[in-house]
Design a protein around this nucleic acid. Structure first.
Length: 727
DNA sequence: AGCACGCCGACT
DNA sequence: GTCGGCGTGCTC
């Protein structure tokens, strides 16, 4: 590969802002840059880091031209990564500069890590020997360099002793390279004994890695079937052939357990990458990934934009997880972009999930992806019994939300001294508050969603934009005192109900708004795993990969929640979430039970969960999508506009229909139906546009941009299609 | 995305 | 009379 370019007097530089194309900068005499060089350039009043890009420079007014200030002493971004940036920009219809910005997010890492001062034994001996000095000399015997504090600590002496020895010339100062953030993983550290079907899947993945070319495998195995062990074999194979590996995880901040597991297999932790990483660590990881010191990264979606130099495998764990979607600035799905990255880099990608997305299932069944299925055979003993509770036949007591059937099972579980989990995917106390006298409903003044009551905090909170206000005593509309009524349940309200039934049980509520952040959450989860709670009431964060060995009952308070929101993926998402939640019970070998409270026990999702027949559910879902030409069959794109009213959104839709009459299928989803997860901070409507070819779609979107709202920057685009068809 | 410029309300 | 809100425009 030719990375060198002839010396040029001007160079295209991609700067980290919404620039549609690289800007042109002068290259001062004597400065040498190549495509991929990271450079410091003036931009308006400030200095920014940019990347020297490919292609010819654009002719630009000589008065505008400013010089590159500095070329960072940093490995250049390789050609594959540059092509990836262009591809992502083109596919997501975002400015390339914004994509480049995602890979320039460790500003201090562009300068080499400073070497640190170390001490090394000389041939001199100290004038007098003391116990402390003897210990120091013994510790430093091997001739290796030590840091001063490290040596003092290891020898159990104070730094003064070391200083004394150094002053006598017994130690001399040497510069030592910065410590690696993680030790090298060893592929043969603890090779596991695999079950026969695991073995078969692992050989397939190993063969994919050995082939050394782009391919995608969908690793499909129910909870407890040992997926992780299987893809670790692919990781081992990639390490053996000298490649770097990226493992994407949907929410790394809570996956402490994963890092431990990795260490048990490979004898060292993987490099970690996520938004909570302290800045200092961030820089080290970025730099060491670029230099090749870090061989494996476990990271959140943003890790896709790390500057790997020898990337040879990407594993996307829980590939169906919606957390892979980035929904601001550059809209992308990291699972899809991982496939693209593999295609560009010419290496394999593994998608793993117990409940694969419909897109990936279809790609597998059409032969674009290989599929490895791990049967439930070895996990079966650990799977809970699943039943639905028909809420029409077994309704809750007046004012309550828990069916007597569920309460009864909770009582029995308590008597056996085992744990129960109640799952409700709704934070706070009640999702809607209204005045019993005049019917006034509390809406968010900013974005028009209903305000959720948080009783512990005494506040009404908008879950959409974060707006909050004190819960008043009187109705702001009619002024009547004490007639405000809470409608519907949130986890806080369920906790209240639980306490009335089981006043002596240790009850805990887990939701993302607990105080103390991730650390506190991790402690709470540990406490629960240690049996320090009898009843846990939680939102979806309890569904993620945590093991509670004594949890034998899972009750889903409102299994229908999320089915009626008009999202084409509602059924799929609900199935995935319920599978995951009910999987929290029964990791014990004890007899365990999952109960779904539902008004629609015959709904395909409930039937699939209760019967365990995922295959027919997926078949049904696939043919439904095909019939309605929804993804992955229809070429569906969503345009998100900051329309606050339905009328406004309809107006945009009309403009678009005029501009592109062939776009016969165009949906406008209002606030009630639109999946909130897809919408940004402000309350927005979503338009879904279909077209047969990507070119059509882009045409529609351009028309939208041209005919759409006048305000600049108010149109955001989400291209929500499987990129496989565009590779 | 930042950051400056610019034009209208409450105030040390 | 100023300080400061965010609307508009520009960055090689």
């Amino acid at each position: 590969m030719i990375e060198d370019s002839p010396f040029v007097a001007a160079a295209p530089v991609l700067v980290p802002m919404p620039a549609e194309r690289p800007y042109t900068y002068a290259v001062p005499a004597g400065m040498r840059v190549v495509p991929g060089s990271i450079v410091r350039v003036p931009l308006g009043p400030r200095q920014v880091a940019g990347i020297v890009w490919d292609g010819a420079v654009e002719q630009v007014d000589a008065r505008k031209l400013r010089p590159i200030e500095q070329v960072f002493d940093c490995p250049p971004i390789d050609r594959a990564m540059r092509r990836f940036v262009d591809w992502v920009a083109q596919y997501t219809l975002s400015p390339p500069g914004m994509v480049a910005r995602m890979l320039l997010r460790a500003p201090e890492a562009f300068d080499p890590e400073p070497w640190i001062e170390g001490l090394q034994r000389t041939l001199l001996v100290p004038d007098r020997m003391t116990d402390a000095r003897a210990r120091v000399l013994e510790t430093a015997e091997g001739g290796l360099a030590w840091t001063r504090s490290g040596l003092a600590h290891a020898a159990g002496v104070s730094a003064t002793v070391i200083e004394g020895l150094k002053a006598q010339g017994v130690f001399e100062t040497v510069m030592i390279p910065p410590r690696p953030v993680v030790a090298a993983p060893d592929p043969s550290y603890a090779v596991p004994e695999l079950m026969p079907d695991q073995n078969e899947a692992a050989s397939m993945l190993r063969a994919n890695v050995a082939a050394g070319e782009f391919n995608v495998a969908l690793l499909d195995g129910v909870t407890g079937s040992g997926k992780t062990e299987v893809y670790f074999e692919a990781v081992a194979a990639a390490l053996e052939q000298g490649s770097q590996v990226l493992i994407l995880l949907p929410e790394i901040a809570l996956t402490h357990a994963f890092l431990e597991r990795f260490q048990q297999r490979f004898g060292a932790k993987p490099g970690e990458w996520h938004s909570d990483l302290p800045p200092r660590m961030r820089e080290k990881v970025w730099r060491q990934v670029a230099e090749g010191g870090v061989r494996v990264v476990a990271g959140a979606r943003s890790a896709l934009f790390l500057p790997f130099r020898e990337l040879g495998l990407i594993v996307v764990d829980e590939e169906h997880d919606p957390a892979y979607k980035q929904e601001d600035r550059v809209f992308y799905n990291a699972r899809d972009m991982a496939v693209v990255r593999g295609h560009i880099g010419g290496f394999p990608v593994v998608l793993a999930s117990a409940t694969p997305s419909v897109e990936s299932r279809v790609n597998a069944s059409q032969g674009r992806y290989a599929r490895a299925v791990l049967s439930a055979r070895f996990a079966e003993a650990a799977l809970p019994d699943l039943k639905s509770i028909d809420m029409r036949r077994a309704p809750p007591a007046r004012g309550g939300f828990l069916s007597p059937v569920l309460i009864d099972h909770m009582r029995r579980t308590l008597e056996k001294k085992e744990q129960s989990l109640l799952f409700l995917n709704r934070r706070g106390y009640a999702p809607l508050t209204l005045c019993r006298v005049c019917g006034h409903r509390f809406g968010c003044p900013v974005c028009s969603a209903w305000l959720v009551e948080h009783r512990f905090r005494g506040q009404l909170v908008c879950h959409h934009c974060g707006h909050n206000e004190r819960r008043p005593e009187a109705c702001p509309e009619c002024g009547t005192l004490d007639h405000l009524v809470a409608c519907g349940p949130g986890v806080e309200r369920i906790a209240e109900e639980v306490v009335t039934h089981f006043p002596d049980a240790r009850t805990i509520v887990l939701s993302s708004d607990i105080m103390g952040g991730v650390r506190r959450l991790r402690l709470e989860l540990e406490a629960i795993a240690n049996g320090e709670a009898d009843i846990v009431i939680g939102t979806q964060l309890v569904a993620k990969g945590h093991n509670f060995p004594n949890m034998t009952l899972v009750g889903v308070v409102d299994a229908d929640l999320g089915l009626a929101n008009g999202d084409p993926r509602a059924a799929e998402r609900t199935f995935q979430l319920l599978s995951q939640v009910t999987g929290r019970a029964g990791r014990t070998g004890k007899k365990s039970l999952g109960l779904l409270q539902t008004f629609q026990p015959d709904h395909p999702v409930m039937r699939a969960i209760v019967s365990g027949d995922a295959e027919s559910f997926y078949q049904r879902e696939i043919s439904e999508r095909e019939r309605a030409a929804l993804p992955p069959f229809g070429r569906l794109a969503g345009v998100i506009v900051s329309a606050v009213t339905r009328a406004e959104a309809e107006g945009h839709a009309r403009g678009l229909r005029r501009a592109a009459p062939e776009a016969s299928d165009l949906f406008v989803l209002g606030p009630a139906e639109a999946p909130l997860s897809l919408l940004g901070g402000r309350h927005r409507f979503r338009l879904l546009i279909q077209g047969e070819r990507r070119a059509d779609m882009q045409g529609f979107i351009r028309a939208m941009l041209a005919n759409g709202p006048k305000q600049r920057g108010s149109v955001r685009v989400q291209v929500d299609i499987d990129p496989q068809s565009f590779l």
